[in-house]
Amino acid sequence: MFSVTYAQLNGWLTAFLWPLTRILALIATAPVFGNTSLSVRVKVGLGAFITLIVAPTLPAMPQVTVFSANGVWIIVNQFLIGAALGLTMQVVFATIAATGELIGLNMGLSFASLFDPSLGETTDVMSRYFNAIATLAFLSLDGHLQVIAALIETFRSVPISANVLNAAGWKMLAEWGSSIFAGGLLLALPVVAAILISNLALGILNRAAPQIGVFQIGLPLTLLVGMLLVQFMLPNMIPFFSHLFDGGIEELGRVAAAFR
């Protein structure tokens, strides 16, 4: 007759539940994985599948009962680690979205907003455009596989028993988040500078020949200049996105190391 002791059941639960919590937290917060277009069943199934593969290779788990105070605290720590790692990669896509917002604002498209289901709010149309390109580039460059590989590596650098409440990783994550504006401005700088020059030229033209009607041709001209420059940027945009993705993966490893 097959029988299972409480110690064996607790060992199986700890070997599966604690890694699953970290993996699901990352899936819920990371770009692409956390998109609301993916159903909860798909996310849970993906997390369970990854856990089943990873769990046998992990170091020995702490000898703690799953539903004891210490066991629940370990679950909380695993959730915090996974969420922090997912937000680290989310900063990269926030940088790209900020680029679209800056370009759209200078092109006069700030009034053209669409509802973004992934964020649950309205976003600038250029931000949606840049985000779509970034998502396709992320998938084509196997960024999703690199994120999963980096997550699995964190189980060795940050053990299950780690207490991350006072870890330096949170400060590093906040500093990494401060790069959103700088990175977005760097990518949008060519378009912003060109549109600024065209606006200055229109201002000079308005002073020299007021009868031309600069206000009638200003918005169409700004849109035309902006769209042409975005078109010219596309060949160099994917390498820049690849650089951002690589930096995000590296930062993910540094944040995880700071949680030790």
Rank of each mutant, 00 (worst) to 15 (best):
M1N: 08
F2H: 09
F2L: 10
S3I: 12
V4S: 11
V4N: 10
T5H: 06
W12N: 05
W12Y: 14
A15T: 09
L17I: 12
L17E: 08
W18P: 00
W18I: 01
P19W: 00
T21W: 05
I23Y: 00
L24P: 02
L24M: 08
L26S: 00
I27C: 05
A28I: 07
T29A: 15
A30F: 05
A30V: 04
N35H: 14
T36A: 15
S37R: 15
R41L: 15
V42F: 13
V44K: 05
A48P: 07
F49V: 06
F49I: 07
T51M: 02
L52I: 11
I53F: 14
V54F: 04
A55R: 08
M61K: 06
M61C: 07
Q63A: 15
Q63H: 14
V64C: 02
T65F: 11
T65H: 11
V66P: 00
F67M: 13
S68P: 10
S68E: 11
A69K: 11
N70L: 03
V72Q: 07
V76E: 06
N77F: 04
N77E: 12
F79T: 04
A83W: 04
L85D: 04
L85N: 02
G86W: 00
L87V: 07
T88N: 09
T88H: 07
V91M: 09
V92R: 03
L105H: 03
M107C: 04
L109R: 01
D116W: 07
D116A: 09
D116T: 07
P117W: 08
S118N: 15
L119Y: 08
L119I: 11
G120I: 08
T123I: 13
D124P: 01
V125T: 04
S127A: 14
Y129N: 10
N131Y: 13
I133F: 13
A134C: 07
F138H: 06
S140L: 13
S140Q: 12
G143Q: 00
V147H: 00
V147E: 02
A150P: 03
L151E: 03
E153R: 15
E153K: 15
R156I: 09
R156K: 14
R156W: 12
S157N: 14
V158I: 05
V158L: 02
P159I: 04
A162F: 03
L165A: 12
M172N: 07
G177A: 05
F181E: 14
F181D: 11
G183Q: 12
G183E: 07
G184Y: 00
G184N: 05
L185Q: 10
L186C: 12
A188S: 14
V192M: 14
I195Q: 04
I197Y: 13
S198F: 10
N199A: 10
L200W: 06
A201V: 14
A201W: 08
G203H: 05
I204L: 10
I212W: 09
G213A: 06
F215C: 06
G218H: 13
P220K: 15
L224V: 12
M227S: 10
L228I: 15
V230Q: 05
F232E: 12
M233R: 09
L234C: 02
N236Q: 12
F240P: 04
F241I: 10
S242T: 14
S242W: 05
L244G: 00
G248V: 04
G248T: 02
G248P: 00
E250M: 11
G253K: 03
A257H: 09
R260A: 15
